[in-house]
Design a protein around this nucleic acid. Structure first.
Lengths: 192, 192
DNA sequence: TCGAATGTCTAGCAGTGCTAGGATTCGGCC
DNA sequence: GGCCGAATCCTAGCACTGCTAGACATTCGA
């Protein structure tokens, strides 16, 4: 059985290589540059190998998205736990979120802009996505205010962050106001 | 000269036909279905004709975006002018914005999601885009609050609306909370 | 040692955005 | 009216895309 196990390990390793390569390529040159041919060449296998791991390009995007969700959740938790009072936590959350989006634009796109074939806001939503939302809710639930559903508040706050992240990255907002926008958002939305 | 004029008219008419057809196709079957071949077939000309009007597919998207911006600005102004007090105006604006995004998803994508080769938030930004932002600012500037720059506030409010529009349309937010999200956003962000 | 199963690759399909170059039609001039 | 140059348009094709059928090699169990 040890041969089979080794093969499974190698297969899993190759799958990680595919996801990592796709992510790297997308981050360096954009998702348009992530073609099945280029990806196959980089991992030094032929195209059909990709399809023995994933149903298609969409699923590869989905895999990158899940990886990104896990990292994002971790970074957000790390940032909020380091802060003292609720206000500092919310500010830290907002900064960590926008930071992640700015530093990993391709991963962010895989998560929230592109179609990775993943289910969101449902029962069968993959665990990493649920957990990322939970990471937001843990901190934002604290400042939802009386009588306001924590989930509802988190959705609204998250939407605002998402809007800031996407519009600013595509040059649709004034760059010099970035910091002021975050402060204004936190001041107004959070009940402290 | 009248022959030349007629030709120019016909050319302009054909250009309108291209934009209208692209928009219709995108709205019915998504932007992926808007291929140069299909578009050429629909307008009953060959592909190269498209390139005598536009540099490429990107510019066609841009043309649809500009058309959409004009309509959006008009709808927002119509909605806000019909409302009485500032609070009603802001709510009407939010509803009108999200309504437009929901009713014209392809146009909304052309405007804020896809690359139409347009400049945003700059001096050389096309007039329709500037005017759409102005339409938002006219109403939102009223409720920015003391000491808060109206442009800054408009950017933040707009980003929130954009986040709601995109995340809800791609199924990333709970559909049943749509109304509550708008109310919460207006309540918190606007200074009344 | 041989047949079967597994793994991988070559080659190809239908589709994409875009364009070079040839055919055709048209307007103005003699 | 007949001709020529220019404007207009189309055919055909390029290099690319995601994806897959079928051939080929390799490895495994009997």
């Amino acid at each position: 059985m040890s041969v089979t196990e080794r093969k499974q390990r190698e297969r899993a390793e190759r799958e990680r290589l595919i996801v990592a390569t796709a992510r790297d390529l997308a981050e360096r040159r954009g998702w348009d540059a992530v073609t099945t041919r280029r990806l196959a060449e980089r991992i030094e296998y032929s195209q059909p190998v990709l399809y023995s791991h994933f149903r298609g390009k969409r699923e590869i995007i989905g895999a990158v998205a899940l990886q990104g969700a896990t990292e994002m959740a971790a970074e957000i938790r790390a940032a909020t736990e380091a802060a003292g009072d609720p206000r500092a936590r919310v500010t830290a959350l907002a900064r960590a979120y926008l930071d992640f989006a700015a530093r990993n634009p391709a991963v962010y796109d895989a998560l929230f802009q592109l179609d990775g074939g993943l289910a969101y806001a449902r029962e069968d939503t993959p665990a990493p996505l649920k957990d990322a939302f939970a990471a937001l809710l843990e901190t934002l639930g604290e400042v939802a205010g009386d009588g306001v559903d924590k989930g509802l508040f988190t959705e609204v706050f998250w939407s605002s962050l998402h809007g800031l992240a996407t519009l600013s990255r595509t040059g649709r907002l004034l760059p010099e106001l970035a910091k002021a926008r975050v402060e204004l958002l936190v001041d107004r939305l959070a009940v402290l």
